[in-house]
Design a protein around this nucleic acid. Structure first.
Lengths: 219, 219
DNA sequence: ACCTGAACACCGTTCAAGT
DNA sequence: ACCTGAACACCGTTCAAGT
C-alpha cells in the first residue's frame, strides 16, 4: 500500500489571503475579487477570511501595499547612477513595468483612504536621488506633486485604451475639426485605427521627460 | 369647494434623473448614488428609472457627460486671447474650478468604458488653441498625452488629502530620512500639519506650468 | 406608454454555534 | 484559536402585472 501523505493544508494567514487576492485581480480583474470568491480560492468559507483581515478595505489596502513592495524590491536592486535625471527616469520606468503586470493597481491606489506605507518609502528614495542631484527640499516637494502618479509609473488618461464599447456611437468628427485634422495626420501611417492608436510607452516617456527636463532647468 | 389644482408632477425624463443623480453625488458622495435612493429623490420607484436610462452605467456615463458639459459651457464663454500658453492655462484652471464642485467626477471619468463625447469637444478646443500657437498636429497629440487628466483640471495624487484614517499607524519617519528632512523644512512655517499640508492649487499650477513651459520650448 | 411590487442573484458583514 | 452555516441588510436588475 502506497503511503499517501496528504499534504496538511497550510493554515490560512493574512499573507496567503493577500497573495490569493492579487492572483484573482491579476487574472480576472478587480471586480472578480469578492469575499466569497476569495474564500473559494484559499479553500475556506468567505467568513473565515475575517479572522485574518479585518474587512474588504483591509484586503484592498493589503494588495496595494503588496504591489508597491514589489516595485520597491525592483528599484532597490538597481545599481547606483551618477546623473539624477537618468536615475529617477530609470526608477520610474521600472516601477511602470511592475504596474503593467497589475493593471488594476492604479484604481486601487486611488481609493485608499490613508497613505500606503510602501509608497512613502518609494518617494523617500526618489527624494534621495533628487537631493543627490542638487535639488532643494522645496523643489523636491514640488517635483513630487508635479510627477503625481507618474512617479509610480502610471499616467491618468481620460479615456482608457481598453476594449472600448462597440455599441457606443462613433464621435461626430464634423463637430471636432481640430481633433479630426490631428487624427488624420497622426494616424496616417496606421489607417486602421481611429482612437487608441497611441504608443502608450512612448507617450509616457514624453510626458515624463518634459517634467524631468523642466525640473532640471529650474534646479 | 376650492379648486385644488394639483400640480401635475412633471413626468420623469432622462434629464431629470441625471440632474438628481448629480445632486446626490455632490451632496452625499458617489457611494450614496444607488438606484433606490435616486428613485426616492425623483419621487418614483427605483424600477421606474429603467424607462429613462438603460442601467446604472448609463447614469454614470450621463453624469460624467453632464459635468464636462458644464466645463465646456464655462470655457466656451472665455474671451479670446492671443498667447496660446495663457489661453490654455486659463482654460484648464477654469475646468479645474468646475471640477472642484464635483469631487466625485474624476473617479467616474476613469471608470467610463468609452470616450465621453464632451471630453472630445473639450480637447478639440485645446488643440485649436495650440494650433493657433504654432503647434504641429504631432506636438498637439503628445501635449494632450503629457497633460493627461491635468487637461481637465485634476491631478492624480497617490494619497488624497481626504479626512485620513485616524486608526492608521503614523509612518515611521526614522525609516524615511529624506522624506523626514523634506517635511521638516517644507512645513516649518505650519508646524501643526504632518501630511496633507500642501497648497493643492499652487502645486497644480506648478506642474501645469512645468508642462506648458516645456512644450513652449519644443514648439 | 409609463409605472410598480415582488422576486432573483448577487454583495459585505454579523453572530451564534461548532471543533 | 480558528472555522462555519445561517441570516441580515443591502445592491442592480428582471419580469409579470397593473393603469
Amino acid at each position: 500500500m502506497t503511503r499517501v501523505t496528504v499534504q496538511p493544508r497550510s493554515p490560512l494567514t493574512r499573507d496567503r489571503v493577500l497573495r490569493a487576492a492579487v492572483g484573482i485581480a491579476d487574472e480576472q480583474g478587480i471586480a472578480a475579487l469578492t469575499m466569497r470568491r476569495l474564500g473559494e480560492v484559499v479553500g475556506a468559507e468567505a467568513m473565515s477570511l475575517y479572522h485574518h483581515v479585518s474587512n474588504k478595505e483591509d484586503i484592498l489596502d493589503g494588495i496595494a501595499e503588496h504591489v508597491v513592495q514589489e516595485i520597491n524590491d525592483v528599484v532597490d536592486g538597481l545599481p547606483a547612477q551618477q546623473d539624477w535625471k537618468q536615475a529617477v527616469r530609470r526608477r520610474i520606468l521600472h516601477a511602470r513595468a511592475v504596474l503593467l503586470k497589475h493593471p488594476w493597481a492604479p484604481a486601487v491606489f486611488e481609493t485608499r483612504k490613508s497613505v500606503i506605507p510602501a509608497v512613502l518609502r518609494y518617494h523617500d528614495g526618489l527624494i534621495g536621488l533628487m537631493r543627490g542631484g542638487g535639488f532643494s527640499n522645496d523643489l523636491c516637494h514640488h517635483a513630487l506633486h508635479a510627477l503625481g502618479s507618474r512617479a509610480l509609473g502610471f499616467s491618468q488618461e481620460l479615456f482608457d485604451a481598453g476594449p472600448g464599447d462597440d455599441a457606443a456611437p462613433p464621435p461626430n468628427l464634423a463637430e471636432l475639426p481640430y481633433l479630426a485634422e490631428m487624427l488624420m495626420e497622426v494616424v496616417h501611417d496606421d489607417p486602421d485605427s481611429t482612437i487608441g492608436w497611441c504608443d502608450d510607452q512612448f507617450e509616457f516617456e514624453f510626458g515624463l521627460d518634459l517634467i524631468l527636463d523642466g525640473l532640471d532647468k529650474i534646479k
